[in-house]
Every structure is written in C-alpha cells, then in structure tokens.
C-alpha cells in the first residue's frame, strides 16, 4: 500500500493494484449473486414443496399461462444476455461506441420483457386469476354474464373489452366450452394458449370476435386471455383439463382442484420478484450506460460494466428456470 503516487484515479486508496481492486469487485459481485440465488431459493423451495404435495394444482393451473409469451420473453432475455456479454467484451477493448449501442439494446430488451409481462399480468388481473384471497375467477364474468360464459371467457374479454361484451353470451354455450376442452385433450396441452385461440373458432359464434381481434393491435393479449377456471355449474367443461387426476371426483362438478390459487400466488411472487430484479438490472445498466457516455471507462478500467453484466446474466438465468417451472408443467 505504499506508492500512492502511482495510484490512478479509479483505484481506491486502500488497494495496491488495479488487479486487486478488480478481483475484489468480482468476488463481491459473485457473493452478492449467491445471496440473490438464495433469495429466490426460498420461492423455489416453496414451489417444490407445493408441487410435490399437490401436482394437480400445477398441472391444472399452468395452462392459464401463455407459453408463447413466456417463450418470447425467454428469447428476449437470452438475446439481451448476448448483447450484455458483447458490451462487456467491447468495454474491455475500450470500444466505448460499441458499448453504448450494445447496452442500449440490452436496456430495450429489458423494456420489452417488462412490456410482455405487463400484458400477461393484465390478462390475469382481468380474469381474477390471482393469488389467495384475490382469486376470483368468476368475477369478471359476473361483470359480463354470470358463470356460464366461463370457458370462452378468455375469448370474451379479448374481444369483449375492445369490441362488445355482448359477444360473450353468444360464445357462452357449452358447446364452445367442450370444443376447447376437446382440443386440449387431443393436443395433450402442448400449447394451451393457441389452443384457446383455435378452439372457440370451431365453436362457431365466437369465431368472429377472435378474427377481429388482431385489430386490437395487441395479438398477445388475445393469446394470454386464456379461459379462467370455471366456477359453479359451467365447470363441466373443465373435465378436459384434468382427465388423469380426478382428485375431487365429487358428484357436483367441482373439477377445478381446490386451492388452485396457490399456483397463482407462487406465480406472481416468483415472476414479481424476478420483475423487480429486471428493473434493478435495468437501472444498473442505465447507470453504466451513462458512465460510458461520460467517458468514465477505458480499456484499463471498465469494472462496473463487467459487474453489471454478471448481475444481468443472473437475472436472465433466474428466468430460464422460471419459464419451464411455471409455464411448461406436465
């Protein structure tokens, strides 16, 4: 720690060499990432426990998540990890123009991810597919037409919100519901979202609103508007959703497993906490972007870009686990 005269500006007074400072920063960030993993570990643990005790809840409820949107977001994040890694490399080489471009793209990917997530959340909110006490899947249809519209309600709202709520009644027949169920059966739920899009089309009257839908300029919204679980009498269509489980084989059509909301609770907690981390990561990216533009970094010193890169990769990695665990059950 002698030789203060040779200290560059970016080197903390308590470090001897830039390497020592870089190594310290990296070790610190890796430790921090370990704490982040453990923070999520609690939720993964809760997920594992509830899924092992109640697999039927997860099998049933995951269909209400939109696999396409999840896949899209996965792709967005993987791509952003690539641009982030490139940014780190360019920063090491001192090519700050490239760094700015690449960080900007990464940041935009972050916005894209959040946008898609917002669309998904909105759809869940509309259908009352929420956690614990807020789980009222029939609520929205009460707004429209009572419980019988349940199954195609996904279509209903997709169209209904923007066009006419009345369509719901037309679509509300049990036939449409069964169609949906059938298509699920046949496809063994490979892609619940698109199934829903297609199923009501065979159902006749609903075809029109679905067709119209792209005019919403929000095709994703349609896909995410999967039918909410039924409550009460119209539930018979739900047989299709759980042909194997049959946990509650009561005479009354209560086919939805009890406590489905546990899944949505875990879904919102995990994706919500992840979303907070995405926002934190984006803030950090914005910060190093600003510093890059200010010319704070050079080929000799770009540690913050490196560290933010590590953080962003972790944020991506968590999602890589969340996507299959939540969207691709069964």
């Amino acid at each position: 720690m002698s030789g203060h005269s040779s200290h560059p500006d970016y080197l903390g007074h308590h470090y001897d060499t830039p390497e020592q400072q870089f190594d310290s920063g990296s070790l610190g960030m890796w430790l921090f990432l370990a704490t982040e993993v453990l923070l999520f570990a609690g939720l993964f643990c809760a997920y594992a426990i509830y899924r092992s005790h109640h697999p039927e809840i997860f099998l049933y409820a995951h269909q209400y998540l939109d696999k396409n949107m999840g896949a899209l977001n996965t792709a967005v994040l993987i791509f952003s990890s690539f641009t982030m890694a490139m940014a780190v490399r360019m920063a090491q080489l001192g090519k700050n123009n490239h760094v700015v471009t690449l960080l900007t793209i990464t940041l935009l990917c972050g916005f894209g991810f959040l946008g898609v997530k917002k669309v998904e959340y909105e759809a869940k909110w509309k259908h009352g597919l929420l956690w614990g006490k807020k789980f009222h899947p029939e609520e929205h249809s009460a707004g429209a037409h009572g419980t019988e519209a349940l199954h195609d309600a996904g279509v209903t709202t997709a169209a209904g919100v923007t066009t006419a709520a009345g369509v719901a009644t037309a679509a509300g027949g049990a036939g449409a519901s069964h169609d949906t169920g059938a298509s699920h059966d046949a496809a063994a739920m490979p892609a619940g979202a698109t199934d829903h899009g297609a199923a009501p089309a065979t159902g006749g009257s609903t075809a029109a609103p679905v067709g119209i839908n792209p005019a919403n300029a929000d095709p994703m919204a349609v896909r995410s508007n999967i039918a909410p679980p039924p409550a009460g009498p119209a539930g018979l269509a739900e047989n299709a959703f759980e042909p194997k489980q049959k946990v509650n084989s009561h005479a009354t059509p209560k086919e939805r497993p009890s406590n489905v909301h546990i899944f949505f609770g875990i879904y919102f907690l995990m994706t919500g906490l992840h979303g907070v981390h995405v926002i934190a990561g984006m803030s950090a990216i914005a910060w190093v972007l600003w510093r890059t533009m200010k010319g704070h970094f050079s080929a000799q010193y770009s540690t913050p870009v490196h560290l933010v890169g590590l953080y962003w990769h972790l944020v991506d990695l968590v999602w890589i686990y969340l996507f299959p665990l939540l969207y691709l059950v069964g």
Binding site: E36, L38, A46, G132, K133, S258, L269
Partner: peptide, 29 residues
C-alpha cells in the same frame, strides 16, 4: 448464505398479511 432466506421469508409474510397470498394460511390451503 442464510440472511437472504430470511429476507424472502419476511417478504412472503408481508405478502401474506397485506395481500392474502395464501402460502402460509391454512384457510387458503
């Protein structure tokens, strides 16, 4: 290594109390 687990536990408790998330509440499964 341990404190983050407390962190998430307390967040879950807050979520349970504020929003009724149901994860620790026997009435909600």
């Amino acid at each position: 290594l341990a404190t983050p687990v407390l962190g998430i536990t307390l967040l879950l408790l807050i979520a349970e109390r504020a929003m009724g998330i149901g994860i620790f509440d026997p009435a909600l499964g």
